[in-house]
Amino acid sequence: MENKGIEFQVNVAAIDQKDFKWNTSINYSTNKNKLLSLSDKNFQLAAGYFDAGTTEEPIQQALARIQIGQPIGNFWGFKSVDIDENGYWIIEGKDGAAKPIAQQQADDKQIIGNGLPKHYLNFNNSLSYKNFDLNVTMRGAFGFQVLNSPRMFYAAPVMLTRGNLLTSAYDNIYGKRPLADDQSLNYLSYYIEDGDYWKIDNVTIGYSIPLKKVAIKGLRVYASGSNLVTFTKYTGVDPEVGVSGLTPGFDNRDRYPATTTFTLGASFTF
């Protein structure tokens, strides 16, 4: 595998006065990978690719294709382009023409997204004014897609006989009508969403109380909040999904979401 990218960080003392200080840092990284070979003198893979991951029961299709000349993380499935008047999917065939999903062929599948972010950005700020201090940490990832597995399973009326549904299960698809409930669940590009996000990851505010005349020289009290706000167009719970292994960008329907936490504390200087 070949990886090419850059990373840089800029640290700035924006304000450095006696009572007021502001330090800020920006970190940016980007990486592009390409699979060069799946064979060596001991092992030959004639096909030039293999499929990885699974959408789980009852769909049970491979998630990604690992292919020579392509990056890791490519989602591999049918590209949905419409639904017909009866609520059945219409997909794009290998020749680029639209066709009913009932006429699908294995070679109609194509790359429908990639789960590896192309860009990462971190923006950190530390401010202090006399005895007050404020720290704000923000970060984001951009240029990638997420397979919204909960939506794929639970936002289709097909699942009515298998358990609970999301309230969006009977929403119109492509502005037409709800999906027909007598077809199989399908792994389609319709459920691949842009995963770009920007998070206010942590905000901490503190106040230092000098206590030089007692055994404790200093006391700092603080309040902190983590995972406060996420800005994204992703319709799932959290676009920050796993990006390791061969199937990055898969939002597993059993994944426990990240939590928002608030902390009150105090630190002592002796």
Rank of each mutant, 00 (worst) to 15 (best):
A97F: 09
L127I: 14
Q103P: 01
S80R: 05
N124C: 00
F123H: 06
P117D: 12
K79D: 14
K99W: 01
V136M: 12
A141M: 03
Q145Y: 05
K79A: 08
K79M: 01
E92G: 00
I90R: 14
F75P: 02
K94C: 07
G73F: 04
F142Q: 13
S80H: 06
A141F: 00
N124D: 15
I72W: 01
I101N: 13
N122L: 10
L127N: 01
P117V: 02
P100H: 10
G73I: 03
I112F: 01
Q70S: 09
Q110L: 02
I111T: 05
E92F: 02
Q70W: 04
V146T: 03
G87E: 12
G143D: 04
F123P: 01
I111R: 05
I111C: 04
F144K: 07
F132M: 04
W89C: 08
H119M: 06
M138V: 07
G93V: 06
N135F: 13
M138Q: 06
K99M: 10
N135R: 13
S80E: 14
T137Q: 14
N125Y: 06
D108T: 11
M138L: 09
H119V: 04
I112W: 01
D82Y: 10
A98E: 05
V136E: 10
A106D: 10
D108Y: 12
W76M: 00
D108Q: 12
S128H: 10
G113H: 08
N122V: 14
N135E: 13
K109N: 06
D108A: 10
I91F: 00
R139M: 12
H119G: 02
G93A: 15
K94P: 00
G143Y: 10
G77W: 02
H119I: 02
A98T: 07
A102M: 13
D107V: 10
D95P: 08
K79H: 15
L127E: 04
I83M: 13
I101S: 14
Q103R: 12
T137A: 14
A141N: 12
V81G: 09
F78T: 09
Y88P: 05
F144W: 12
L127V: 15
Q145D: 15
N86I: 02
T137E: 05
N122W: 02
Y88H: 15
G93T: 04
K79P: 02
E92D: 05
S126G: 14
E92V: 03
Q110S: 13
